[in-house]
Amino acid sequence: MSTVFREAWLFVAHVSELPEAGSFVVRDMGEESIIVARGDDRTVRVFLNACRHRGMRLACEDFGSTNAWRCSYHGFTYGSKGEFLGTLVGAPYERVAYPGGLDRDALHLIEAKVDIYQGLVFATWSKHPPQLVSYLGNVAWYLDLVVGRAEMEVVGVPQKWVVPTGWKLPSENFTADAYHTATAHSFLARLGLVEKVDFGRDGYHVDPGGGHGLGVGVHGDEAGSYFPAELTDEYASRLTPHQLNLLKRVKNVHGNVFPNLSFLIPSFINIDGRLVSGMMLRSWQPIGPDQTQVWSWHLVEKNAPNWWKTLGRKMYTQTFGASGMFDQDDTENWEAQTRNATASLSRADEVFLHYEMGLGMQPLQDFPGPGDVYDGKFNEAAGRTFYRTWLDYLAGREFE
């Protein structure tokens, strides 16, 4: 918690969840509860969700809109708008209880550093963090395809549930593991939703560096884009020609921004006669060494046609989320892995795991996107970088 989740940039919200001044959501950064709030100046800020008087949690609901947060313990009140955002604005019987007055500046809510990329709100407790765009590095080019290709919005509110696993297993899964799909998710082929069980193989494995990673699944050029034709102009206005050409070939994209923000454009499947995908974001929030709270958001293009929005939500619900078929497969595996990892032989370093897939392979030289990009999605290069970066944080090593 102190070396990774206090120092790294952490995803905390999407801007569409904060539609107006005074709107807020309550999230977590490591062990800390936080308030993500939008002020009158449209600026998004992040505060520790703790009253400066006795540390009571200020906002106890998951989201809302308010003019002030009032502590339910002693009534200390903090502004949620304008120049008073995060500022102590009053306390009960203040003149009697504090005849000398209160130092309102000293009692300002503790504030994290915040930056936004393509609508994704990140925050960090680091005293000297790199710029967010530097932290993202090469993965930003690929995030443009996922969350920057159009103006995006969150559908509903995020789903939450708890999985008895450590946060690194699901994060690594999205970072680098297309290999498991042929076995763990073979039901797709048996149900006729995809042609073959190797639907996760064709495409590219990308190691962008920085602990981030992703896979881009592609279909043949002759098939044309699977995305709605109604959005073509908006895509073209936001993406470079190279990005747009790659998007036209996309059939799925999975990835992870270090440490715990996963993103996914699931494989397009036929629903009611139309090819559709239900994009999502995931945050793997650690609540203990072998407990993870999953936060899952469904995102869609704001200007998309109604059929794309309706069928995408249906596809997201059926495949991912708390009731999704994919999640039933994955969480069962992560839970069993965690039970094995906490057994005595594993703790005594008697058990070694195999991470050699793709060793010796050379990156492509003519791929238009940045990072080390490999032909085919069956590779563990980004997974090795993920764990190397995690170890760098734990060891306190300096980053370039």
Rank of each mutant, 00 (worst) to 15 (best):
A97T: 07
R282Y: 14
F367T: 06
F352Q: 11
S33Y: 00
H219C: 04
E31M: 07
G30S: 00
F24G: 05
G215S: 11
I110Q: 15
T232W: 09
L261G: 07
A13F: 05
G321D: 10
Y98R: 04
P19T: 04
S277H: 08
G82I: 07
G217W: 09
Y73W: 10
T331H: 14
Y98P: 01
S277V: 03
F378P: 02
W161S: 09
V373D: 03
P363S: 06
A182C: 02
S237Y: 03
V26K: 11
G383V: 03
G55Y: 02
M56W: 03
L264F: 13
T3K: 12
A229D: 14
F63G: 01
V155E: 15
L143S: 02
L191H: 13
E111M: 07
S344F: 11
A395C: 01
E31T: 10
K251R: 14
E17F: 07
S283L: 14
G200I: 01
L109M: 09
W125A: 11
F399W: 07
G119R: 01
M1K: 10
S80L: 03
G215C: 11
G383Y: 06
G358K: 08
K251E: 11
W284D: 04
K302W: 01
G64I: 06
E61W: 03
D198N: 15
G215K: 06
A336I: 14
H354A: 12
Q291K: 15
E230Q: 15
G211A: 06
D372H: 15
L132Y: 05
G312I: 00
G360A: 08
L48K: 13
D392E: 11
K314M: 11
E7W: 00
W390K: 02
Q293E: 15
L10W: 00
K168W: 10
E17C: 02
R339I: 11
N379S: 09
Y73H: 09
S72T: 12
D290S: 14
V44K: 07
G209H: 00
Q337E: 13
V46F: 05
R95N: 10
E398F: 03
S2I: 10
A395M: 09
T175E: 04
N173A: 09
F386V: 01
D40G: 15
V36N: 06
W307K: 05
A91K: 00
H242Y: 01
P170T: 00
V155K: 11
N252P: 01
G75N: 00
N67S: 12
V351S: 03
A336G: 09
T181C: 11
G288L: 02
K113C: 05
D366M: 04
E111K: 11
N67Y: 07
G148K: 02
V162G: 05
T43M: 10
Y78P: 02
F63Y: 12
Q118E: 14
Q293S: 08
G86Y: 01
G22E: 05
A184R: 02
G360R: 06
H354M: 10
G211K: 08
D272P: 07
G278H: 06
V197M: 09
K168T: 13
F378Y: 14
D177K: 02
R201N: 01
I271H: 08
T3M: 08
